[in-house]
Amino acid sequence: MNADYELFWVSGSPYAWRVQLALGYKGVPYISRRMDSAQLAERSPAFLHLNPRGKVPVLKTGDAALYESVAIIAFLDRAHPAVPLFGQTAQEHGRIWQRVSEFENYTRDLFDVEIIRPLLRGHAKDDPEVMRVSAARAYDALGWMERALSEAPYLAGDELTAADIVALPNIQMLRRVAARPEAIEMVLGLEDLGARLPALGAWLSRMESMRGYDAAYPPHWRS
């Protein structure tokens, strides 16, 4: 086990999951430092020393600590370039960062703020019509991904890249919360994205068979 890397993470955090996927896909060993939600809420001085923002993931390497999931993936890609996630040419590099930015800036927040958080916090049924409008907006936000995946197997082309790893956990989280009884009762229609977005559905199947996926799958989701 390579003691140079320690990863601090929480099961089910899509941002920590991104880094676990990148590590697994690249075949980079690390020491797992799983935290529970109570530990994270306490934000011990030792953890705040690693990340003053008090959030996971954190990758400790030697005496330094990195946080912010995409920054960690970029670091790993520079440190372990044999399995590239940000391309090998300038054009590929720019295309991948474009896709990462599209997901982060125009897609992810809609899921997190308007759908995932209300369902996780028990507020979704306060206004079912608003939730249905948000679900329709989610499909609109996924439209660019469906178009991209209709033209190529992965978001930035023919190879799996950081863009796919960044997007996958948030979409899997969306699918998970959309399968809750209250979401089904409100007819959000997000539990089976592949039925309306077949290219996205095929991509999800490919991503679920990627190297490192099973090892990174949130442990508490298996129960």
Rank of each mutant, 00 (worst) to 15 (best):
H123W: 08
H80C: 02
M1L: 10
F75K: 05
S101P: 07
S209C: 15
D158F: 10
G87H: 05
R34Y: 11
E191W: 07
I31Y: 08
S44K: 03
R137A: 06
G143I: 06
D36F: 12
I116S: 09
D4R: 13
R117G: 02
L168T: 05
S134E: 06
A79E: 03
H80Y: 05
E182T: 08
M186A: 15
A199I: 08
L188Q: 12
L119Q: 02
D127F: 02
G201P: 12
E102A: 03
D127N: 07
A46E: 14
E42F: 05
Y25P: 00
W9R: 13
L204W: 14
W221L: 02
L119P: 01
L204Q: 14
M173I: 01
R196H: 10
L85Q: 04
A163M: 06
G122Q: 03
H93P: 10
Y25C: 03
N170L: 12
V113T: 15
K26G: 00
P181V: 02
R18D: 01
D109A: 10
P169Q: 08
Y5W: 08
Y30I: 03
L66N: 07
V56L: 07
L76M: 11
P128I: 02
P29L: 04
Q88T: 15
R222G: 04
R176Q: 06
I116T: 06
Q91F: 08
D140M: 08
A195V: 14
L120E: 12
V83P: 10
G212T: 15
S205L: 13
A141Q: 06
K55Y: 11
R108M: 12
I171N: 11
S205E: 15
R18W: 08
I165N: 07
L59H: 00
R196V: 09
R34V: 08
F75A: 06
G157M: 09
P14R: 09
L59D: 01
I116W: 06
L155N: 13
D127R: 05
P169M: 06
L48T: 04
W9G: 13
L110F: 14
R99E: 11
G194R: 02
F103H: 10
A16N: 04
R147K: 13
L21A: 03
V56M: 09
R34G: 07
R147D: 11
F47R: 03
V10D: 13
L149Y: 10
S11V: 06
L23I: 00
W17E: 05
A90C: 05
M35A: 05
L197C: 10
Y217F: 10
G122M: 01
A46D: 14
